[in-house]
Simulated assay, not measured.
Amino acid sequence: MTYETLIGVDALRDLLGSGTPVLVLDCSFDLADPDAGRAAYAEGHIPGARYAHLDHDFAAPPDGRNGRHPLPARVALAAWLRTQGLRNGRQVVAYDASGGAWAARAWWLLRWLGHAPVAVLDGGRQAWVEAGLPLEAGPPPPAAPGDFEPGPALVPAPVTAAEVVANIDGGAGQVLDARDPARFAGAPNPLDPVAGHIPGARNRFFRDNLGPDGRFRAADALAAAFAPLLQGRPAILQCGSGVTACHNALAMAIAGLPAGRLYPGSWSEWIADPARPVATGDD
C-alpha cells in the first residue's frame, strides 16, 4: 500500500517497523529563525528521518524579484533527493511541527517531480510524540545513494506572475491566498514591505484546514469549505512565498477537488514590482 496525501502515525509506525524502505523527511522550519528547524531536528526526530531545509533544499536562491522561496531546479532537487536515498517508487513521508505548513511544500515538490508515493504525516511531530513513539537525536547514518529520476509532473504547471496579472481582468481562475486574515487584509507585518493582497483573491488561511487536534479536517468538510470560495473556478494557489499555498493544495487533494495551480513567487514576488496592483480589506 502506498500513501499519496496523508499518512497516520500508526501507519507510519507499522511501515517503519516492517522494514519497508521509507524516506522520512523532517521539514521543521521557522521563518523568523531559519536555523531553528535544524536545531530541533538534532534534538529529536522520528527515527531515520533526514532533515530538509526550506531555504537550502526546497528553494532556489532569491534574487529580489522572484519571491522568498523560488522553486528549485528540478534536476537539482532530484539530485538532492538521491543523496537522501530516494529510489524510484519509494514511499516518502514528510512531517514538521507546524501543522504541515512546511511538509506540504515537500509533498507538492515531490509530486512536481512526478513522484506519487509521498504523504504528509497527519498531526506531525506532535502526533508521533503523543502516541508514545520514540525520537532519536543526531544525524542518521549516511544513506545509500538512490536512483530517483524525475518524471512528468503530477501537479498542474505553476502559474507565472504575468498569468496572475492577466487573470485579474479575465477572472478565469480564483486566487486563493493561504496567509492569515490580517496579512491578507493589509495589516503591517515584518515579512512584507507592502501589505495587502492580489486584487480578486479570496482568503483561505491554511490553518483552517486543520481541526483542533492539529490534524487535517475530513474530506467532506474540506470540500464544503473550498466550494464557496472557488464557485466552480480553477484555483490559483498563493501565499507569502509559495510554501503554505501547498497546504491548500494538499487539502484540496484530500477533498477530492480538482488540483489548483501554484503561484510559486506569491506575495513576496508580486510586490517586488510596484506596477502590480494591490488590494486591501477583507475582500
Results as ranks from 00 to 15, higher is better:
residue 274 P to Y: 05
residue 5 T to I: 08
residue 140 P to C: 12
residue 140 P to M: 14
residue 185 A to E: 01
residue 264 P to Y: 00
residue 271 I to G: 05
residue 85 G to K: 03
residue 147 D to S: 13
residue 97 A to H: 12
residue 230 L to E: 02
residue 252 M to K: 02
residue 247 H to Y: 06
residue 230 L to K: 00
residue 208 D to A: 14
residue 229 L to N: 02
residue 63 D to Y: 08
residue 237 L to F: 09
residue 187 A to G: 07
residue 240 G to Q: 05
residue 27 C to M: 13
residue 29 F to C: 11
residue 84 Q to A: 11
residue 81 L to R: 08
residue 134 P to V: 05
residue 198 I to T: 07
residue 36 A to G: 06
residue 119 A to N: 13
residue 260 G to L: 07
residue 158 P to H: 08
residue 141 P to A: 14
residue 244 T to H: 03
residue 194 V to I: 12
residue 60 A to Y: 09
residue 227 A to P: 10
residue 280 T to S: 00
residue 203 N to Y: 00
residue 244 T to K: 01
residue 238 Q to L: 07
residue 16 L to E: 11
residue 71 L to G: 01
residue 224 A to N: 08
residue 268 S to Q: 04
residue 65 R to A: 15
residue 103 A to Q: 04
residue 177 D to M: 07
residue 173 G to C: 13
residue 174 Q to A: 04
residue 163 E to T: 11
residue 102 W to S: 07
residue 254 I to H: 04
residue 29 F to Q: 08
residue 205 F to W: 15
residue 43 E to Y: 06
residue 50 R to Q: 12
residue 150 P to N: 11
residue 58 F to V: 10
residue 186 G to Y: 12
residue 93 V to H: 03
residue 16 L to S: 12
residue 104 A to M: 05
residue 51 Y to F: 15
residue 184 F to Q: 01
residue 175 V to E: 11
residue 182 A to C: 05
residue 186 G to M: 14
residue 36 A to R: 15
residue 156 P to L: 03
residue 227 A to D: 14
residue 91 Q to I: 08
residue 251 A to M: 10
residue 178 A to M: 11
residue 147 D to M: 08
residue 161 A to G: 14
residue 112 W to H: 13
residue 105 R to Q: 07
residue 273 D to S: 01
residue 118 V to H: 02
residue 258 P to W: 02
residue 27 C to D: 10
residue 222 L to C: 09
residue 178 A to H: 09
residue 8 G to P: 05
residue 218 A to I: 07
residue 219 A to V: 03
residue 232 G to F: 11
residue 232 G to N: 10
residue 230 L to Y: 01
residue 143 A to P: 03
residue 75 V to W: 02
residue 38 R to T: 04
residue 137 A to V: 00
residue 136 E to H: 06
residue 134 P to Y: 03
residue 171 G to I: 06
residue 12 L to Q: 10
residue 140 P to H: 12
residue 217 R to C: 07
residue 89 G to T: 04
residue 36 A to D: 15
residue 85 G to P: 06
residue 160 T to P: 01
residue 57 D to F: 03
residue 109 L to Y: 00
residue 232 G to I: 09
residue 120 V to F: 08
residue 271 I to V: 11
residue 53 H to A: 15
residue 86 L to T: 04
residue 217 R to N: 06
residue 101 A to Y: 08
residue 227 A to Q: 09
residue 100 G to K: 10
residue 105 R to P: 10
residue 142 P to I: 05
residue 270 W to M: 09
residue 122 D to G: 13
residue 170 G to I: 09
residue 208 D to M: 11
residue 163 E to D: 09
residue 248 N to L: 13
residue 43 E to R: 15
residue 264 P to C: 00
residue 89 G to Q: 13
residue 223 A to L: 02
residue 114 G to P: 01
residue 158 P to L: 07
residue 64 G to D: 03
residue 62 P to T: 10
residue 56 H to E: 15
residue 203 N to H: 02
residue 201 A to I: 05
residue 202 R to K: 15
residue 41 Y to A: 07
residue 127 A to E: 12
residue 276 R to F: 03
residue 243 V to P: 05
residue 209 N to V: 10
residue 26 D to A: 14
residue 216 F to D: 07
residue 281 G to A: 08
